[in-house]
């Protein structure tokens, strides 16, 4: 593994993204606009927006980094550039590291814009620091990136890559406590929810909602998401084969 190659790869992925101005505009503007819409819908209940808006700050970058990575990596496999990279000094970890850095940065900027709008204009209020919210959102987005990487191995086309979103992402969003409190779900659904990593992002965010300091539960939750990201990355790395049939 080489830090230089990892950074060169991250720069290449970012350059690809920046060449697509419309995608950049959508990545930056859409989450903030949707947050504004949600805040308008929940105008009569600011406490409700504090809960939902906060969770969405992590759900957006998670979902979008999943989509960006799964499609970019699917293209890389289909266009033969992956095979070509495998004949260069690029190690698998350089490539994955490059993706993590590029899309991690992208998620950071996206979260930055969305959080600024939410805190300054939409009246989002948390007891804990907005920086912690951003940290949780970025770690969650790296998990989304890792899932996207993994999924790209099973998608023969870009269409298929997109279709994996309802399979892997939507259940996590529905069960994480965003649309319905977890405590009120049936026992078996709570069990499923416990097994889904996004649940722990939401739990960590809810900690920031109520505690001024970093709590032990918050750290444990962050550890779980980071661990899930590592597991998904290792599985994804296993699908990057230097030799194919």
């Amino acid at each position: 593994m080489s830090l230089r190659i990892t950074l060169v790869t991250a720069a290449r992925i970012l350059r690809q993204l920046l060449n697509d101005r419309r995608t950049v505009a959508l990545i930056l503007a859409v989450p903030a606009l949707i947050l504004a819409l949600i805040s308008a819908i929940m105008d009569g209940s600011p406490q409700m927006f504090d809960r939902v808006g906060l969770i969405l700050l992590a759900v957006f970058p998670f979902t979008i980094m999943f989509l960006l990575t799964s499609i970019t990596m699917q293209r890389e496999r289909a266009a033969g550039t992956l095979e070509r990279l495998m004949t260069t000094p690029t190690a698998k970890l350089d490539l994955i590291g490059g993706y993590a850095i590029a899309f991690g940065l992208c998620a950071a900027v996206q979260t930055g814009v969305a959080a600024t709008v939410a805190y300054l204009w939409l009246g989002l209020d948390t007891v804990g620091s907005a920086w912690l919210v951003a940290l949780i959102a970025i770690v969650t987005s790296v998990f989304g990136m890792a899932l996207g990487l993994l999924v790209s191995a099973f998608a023969a086309t870009e269409f298929q890559a997109v279709q994996f979103m309802p399979v892997l992402i939507v259940p996590q969003i529905f069960l994480c406590g965003l649309i319905w409190p977890r405590e009120e779900m049936a026992g078996w659904l709570q069990g499923v929810s416990d097994a889904l990593p996004l649940t722990y992002s939401v739990e960590a965010l809810q900690e920031v909602q109520t505690a001024t300091e970093v709590t032990a539960a918050m750290l444990r939750d962050l550890g779980i998401i980071a661990g899930a990201a590592v597991v998904a990355t290792v599985l994804g790395a296993a699908t990057l084969r230097r030799r194919t049939g």
């Binding site: 060169v8 350059r15 060449n19 266009a79 260069t88 000094p89 690029t90």
Partner: peptide, 29 residues
């Protein structure tokens, strides 16, 4: 991997990068 180079039949380059960025990337690797 530094001493052998392979050019596939279908051009394996990034369509969303310029010619310069493509070649500079593989140069940097």
């Amino acid at each position: 991997r530094r001493r052998v180079a392979y050019v596939t039949q279908d051009a394996s380059i990034y369509p969303d990068l310029s010619v310069k960025s493509n070649v500079s990337y593989f140069a940097a690797l």
